[in-house]
C-alpha cells in the first residue's frame, strides 16, 4: 500500500512538472504581451519596458521558468500581475465555492448518468432506450456555454425557479450543478448501459436468478456493482473534462469559483494566475485518479494495487 502511494506521488510530481512547463512555454510563445496589457493602451514604450523589467518578463524563458519553479517549491505561486495579491490567496478564496459546485456537479452527473444508463440497459432496444441514448448524445455533444445559457434563460428567467446566478445556498447551487450534471451524464449513461448489458449476460446473473432472488436484488446487488467497476476510473479521468466545464458554467452563472478566476485571468493574460489555476487542475486530476485507484479495490476484490 505505502510503496504504491509513494510511487504514485512520485509520478504525480513528474506530471505536475510537465504541466507547469508546458503551460509556461505556451504562455511565453503567446503573441500577447502582459506588460502592454497592464500598462494600458496609451502607455509609452518606456513605461511598457519598465513594467516588463519589473515583472522579469525580459529575462530568457528558462530563467523565468526556473524562477517560478523555485518559488513553487517554497509554496509560493507568485503574484497576480493585475490584482496585486498573491495567487494562492486568490485561489484560496475561491476554492470552497468551486469544490461545492464540483461535488454537486459530479454527484448530479453520476446520479443522472447511472440511473439513465441502468434504465436504458434494462429496457434495451425499446423506444425509451433509444430516446435516452439520443438524449445522452445531445448531452455529450452540446457546447457547454449554449446549454448553460439556455438553462439560465428557461429555468431562471422564464420560469423563475432558480435565482439568476451568484453565490449562495442550495438554490443558487442547483442550476449550475444540474447543468454540469446533465451535460456530463451522457458519457456515464452510455458507459453504464453497455457495461450493464454485458453484465446482464454473465453466468453469475443466471446463478443469482436460479437462487430465487427477486429482480430488484439481482439488479442492485449483483448487476449494478459489477457494472460500476469500469465507471470508477472514468470518474478520475473525467475530472479534467469537468474542469473545462467549470470554467464555462461558473462564468455564465457568475459563480465565484476557480473557473471564473481562470476565465478572467486568461482575458487579462495574468500569467501567474493562469499557471496557478492550471497547476491546481492538474493536482485535482492526479488526485482524482489516485482516489479512483484506491477506491476500486474496495469494490472489486480481484484488483490488487500491490501488483501495479
Amino acid at each position: 500500500m505505502l510503496p504504491f502511494i509513494c510511487r504514485r506521488v512520485a509520478y504525480a510530481l513528474l506530471i505536475l512538472l510537465g504541466v507547469t512547463f508546458i503551460t509556461y512555454l505556451l504562455l511565453f510563445l503567446l503573441p500577447a504581451d502582459p506588460a502592454r496589457q497592464i500598462a494600458g493602451r496609451s502607455a509609452t514604450p518606456e513605461v511598457v519596458a519598465a513594467i516588463r523589467a519589473q515583472l522579469g518578463l525580459n529575462q530568457p524563458f528558462y530563467q523565468q521558468y526556473l524562477g517560478y519553479l523555485g518559488h513553487l517549491l517554497q509554496g509560493d505561486l507568485g503574484r497576480s500581475y493585475i490584482q496585486r495579491t498573491s495567487v494562492s490567496e486568490l485561489i484560496g478564496a475561491r476554492l470552497r465555492p468551486s469544490l461545492e459546485l464540483m461535488g454537486a456537479g459530479i454527484g448530479c452527473e453520476l446520479l443522472i448518468g447511472i440511473s439513465l444508463g441502468m434504465f436504458a440497459a434494462l429496457r434495451r432496444d425499446s423506444v425509451a432506450d433509444k430516446l435516452l441514448m439520443a438524449f445522452s448524445f445531445v448531452g455529450v455533444s452540446a457546447p457547454q456555454f449554449i446549454a448553460a445559457m439556455l438553462f439560465l434563460y428557461f429555468f431562471a428567467v422564464q420560469l423563475g425557479w432558480f435565482p439568476l446566478g451568484g453565490y449562495g445556498g442550495i438554490s443558487h447551487l442547483a442550476l449550475p450543478a444540474l447543468t454540469l450534471g446533465l451535460l456530463g451524464s451522457g458519457w456515464y449513461s452510455r458507459m453504464v448501459r453497455s457495461s450493464m448489458i454485458e453484465v446482464l449476460h454473465q453466468d453469475f446473473i443466471r446463478t443469482a436468478r436460479a437462487k430465487g432472488l427477486s429482480r430488484a436484488r439481482v439488479i442492485f446487488v449483483h448487476v449494478l456493482p459489477n457494472a460500476i467497476v469500469p465507471v470508477i476510473p472514468m470518474i478520475g479521468i473525467d475530472i479534467g473534462v469537468f474542469m473545462g466545464g467549470l470554467v464555462v458554467v461558473e462564468s455564465v452563472f457568475g459563480w465565484p469559483g476557480i473557473g471564473q478566476l481562470a476565465w478572467q485571468s486568461i482575458q487579462q493574460i495574468d500569467i501567474p494566475v493562469i499557471v496557478g489555476v492550471t497547476t491546481l487542475s492538474a493536482v485535482a486530476i492526479v488526485l482524482g485518479n489516485l482516489l479512483a485507484d484506491l477506491v476500486i479495490p474496495l469494490v472489486d476484490p480481484r484488483i490488487d494495487i500491490k501488483q501495479h
Binding site: 453466468d203 453469475f204 443466471r206 446463478t207 443469482a208 449483483h222 467497476v229 476484490p301
Partner: peptide
Amino acid sequence: MTSLNPLL
C-alpha cells in the same frame, strides 16, 4: 469460473 459473482 464465471458462475459466481466476483464481487461477493
